[in-house]
Design a protein around this nucleic acid. Structure first.
Length: 248
DNA sequence: GCGACAG
DNA sequence: ATCTTGTCGC
């Protein structure tokens, strides 16, 4: 087990999140983001950590770069890492971001021509208690546009998985349909997206950095062959495969 | 006090 | 996060 953080450390993390939050750019900053078919976009990445069942410490950090729009693997990298911090809802970034940043750093060093133009992160961006989830964290620290895609709903203020939420999900008829996740403040923090034609369960998309919400949703949908966008799906399956291989 | 709680 | 088989449906 990773040592639990002290109360002081958690408070330090909170203030770091609120401080870095001011650096998040929630607008489209890249030319390809404004194009209807994302022309100019050639490389999209996915990042994730995979674990073995009982082990909370040892994980496989993965980075995959895919071509766009073909979604074929251009680059793939896996590293075994030992995590320092346990998982805490709201503080995922302090557990996973360091390994992911290092993976991006190695790519920039070894194959700079393969650096992705956008990174899909397994988890939330602005859709977060302090509007600074792991996708924002990785985005601000790397400077690369990031999109947060969560497979499960985080209940932030004003957004609950109640009957209304269920009926909104039921109203998503076809792939690409979405509805906003609105905080009690009135701000739209993300969108629930029906990412593929079959799959009644949506994914939750939010801005990480240097992209607008509408573009993030549109791009996520365009990267989906199944429910989970291909960059993240690739990274998840590869990570698991590798862990099982390493186990023998 | 109780429930909720991305990965 | 991870475990695990079949089964039902298009």
């Amino acid at each position: 087990m990773a040592n639990p953080p002290t109360e002081e450390l958690v408070q330090q993390w909170e203030s770091e999140q609120t401080r870095l939050r001011e650096q998040v750019v929630e607008q489209d900053t890249e030319p390809w983001q404004k194009s209807p078919d994302f022309s100019g976009l050639e490389r999209v990445a996915g990042v994730d950590l995979s674990f073995i069942k009982g082990d909370e410490v040892n994980a496989c950090a993965q980075l995959v770069v895919l071509s766009y729009p073909q979604l074929e693997v251009l680059y793939e990298e896996s590293t075994m890492v030992a995590l320092t911090m346990p998982y805490m809802a709201g503080f995922l970034a302090f557990r996973e971001t360091p390994s992911l940043l290092e993976a991006l750093k190695r790519l920039r060093c070894n194959k700079p021509e393969l650096m992705p133009q956008v990174v899909f992160v397994d988890g939330n961006g602005v859709f977060h208690y302090r509007e600074f989830g792991i996708a924002c964290h990785l985005g601000v620290l790397s400077g690369i546009p990031c999109v947060g895609v969560a497979k499960n709903l985080l209940q932030v203020e004003g957004v609950y998985k109640d009957e209304e939420h269920q009926s909104q999900i039921a109203a998503l008829q076809k792939g690409g349909d979405s509805f906003p996740l609105t905080a009690s403040s009135g701000k739209v923090l993300g969108k629930a997206l029906r990412s593929s034609e079959k799959s009644s369960k949506p994914v939750y998309v939010s801005v990480g950095h240097k992209i607008s919400l509408d573009t993030a949703v549109r791009l996520t949908h365009s990267c989906c062959r199944y429910r989970v966008p291909e960059p993240i799906r690739q990274v998840m399956t590869n990570g698991l495969l590798l862990l099982h291989f390493a186990r023998l």
